[in-house]
């Protein structure tokens, strides 16, 4: 499984290198120009998952992107279903990682070229001046590792859900292709993974059991009058949420936000099974059924914790 993830990351990385090669990677200015055209292209279609800021035209800063990635990662880990893939965010993130890796390489090569002493690459070098110079490099490397960790964990989590729900994904894809095409839901590489995985799975079912059964019982999902046989995500699973409120923090602009008597702002949700109304106060923490808060989650008004 590790190999798969590495492959995906590697492929995504090489993709972004291909774009970078048009500019001179050794010049900062060129690199930045290059990156901004990349963002503009990708921001032409709207980010479905998280509205990063009020003005959709401007490019989110690296910090915003990172913070959003952390939120998306935590959401993905806690949610019972597979959440949409943040195409734009990930494209930006991966191209930044690529850039940063090249930058680090140049910097460390400079060090090697400049220093003739033997302790060059030793970050704990005895020479204090050397140590000071190495500090940015050290921090940048540590930061890069942290970002890579989040992305790996994020993708691993998504792959495990793709494994789990591969038949379900196939089913919704066949049923309503126009509503939520899988291509939006999964990244290009996840799509490849998903397709081959579900093919293998179906073949296994078929070869081991189904083909030995009477023909009228061979369907993978036989729900004539009874229960569907394909695993769906548990929509009512309880999740821990934190109520965030509108992205811009201007409470008046959110039509579904209500101001209570005590001056607290809240969203009102209804639990259909119990016919119960619940007030979700901003900044509070709740344990809730996933289905009840799914819409708020998609708008980024609550996060899973």
């Amino acid at each position: 499984m590790d190999v798969d993830i590495e492959d995906i990351l590697a492929e995504l990385n090489t993709d972004s290198t291909a774009v970078d090669q048009s500019g001179n990677p050794f010049s900062d200015i060129n690199n930045n120009n290059n990156a901004s055209t990349l963002y503009n292209e990708s921001s032409s279609y709207p980010e479905t998952n998280l509205k990063t800021n009020a003005t959709s035209t401007s490019i989110p800063s690296p910090q915003q992107d990172y913070n959003n990635l952390i939120i998306l990662w935590r959401n993905e880990r806690c949610a019972p279903e597979l959440l949409p893939y943040p195409h734009n965010l990930m494209t930006r993130m991966l191209s930044r990682i690529q850039e940063q890796m090249e930058r680090l390489e140049i910097i460390s090569m400079d060090f090697l070229g400049q220093q003739h002493s033997t302790t060059t690459t030793d970050t704990t070098g005895n020479n204090p001046v050397n140590n000071n110079n190495m500090l940015p490099l050290l921090c940048m490397e540590a930061e890069l590792e942290r970002i890579k960790f989040v992305i790996r964990s994020f993708i691993r989590c998504r792959l495990s859900k793709i494994d789990k729900f591969s038949l379900y994904l196939r089913q919704i894809n066949e049923e309503n292709e126009s509503i939520s095409p899988l291509q939006d839901f999964l990244s290009k590489d996840e799509m490849i993974y998903y397709e081959s995985h579900s093919e293998i799975l179906l073949k296994l079912f078929n070869d081991t059991i189904l083909k030995h059964l009477p023909p009228n019982m061979q369907a993978i999902n036989d729900n004539t009058g009874t229960v569907p046989m394909i695993d769906e995500p548990d929509w009512n699973k309880f999740v821990f949420i934190k109520v965030i409120g509108p992205q811009n923090k201007i409470f008046n602009t959110d039509p579904i936000l209500i101001k209570g008597d005590n001056g607290k702002w809240y969203y009102e949700v209804i639990i259909p099974e119990l016919q119960e109304r619940v007030e979700l106060i901003i900044d509070s923490i709740y344990v809730m059924r996933y289905k009840v808060i799914k819409d708020l989650l998609m708008e980024g008004k609550v996060t899973l914790i």
């Binding site: 690296p62 910090q63 990172y66 930044r96 990682i97 940063q100 930058r103 140049i106 910097i107 400079d110 060090f111 400049q114 110079n133 940015p136 490099l137 921090c139 940048m140 930061e143 890069l144 942290r146 970002i147």
Partner: peptide, 19 residues
């Protein structure tokens, strides 16, 4: 020039200016 590049903080998760 080379030295400048080396002591530059270009961070991806925070504002490099603070550093």
């Amino acid at each position: 020039e080379g030295n400048d590049d080396m002591s530059r903080w270009k961070m991806l998760t925070m504002d490099g200016r603070a550093l």
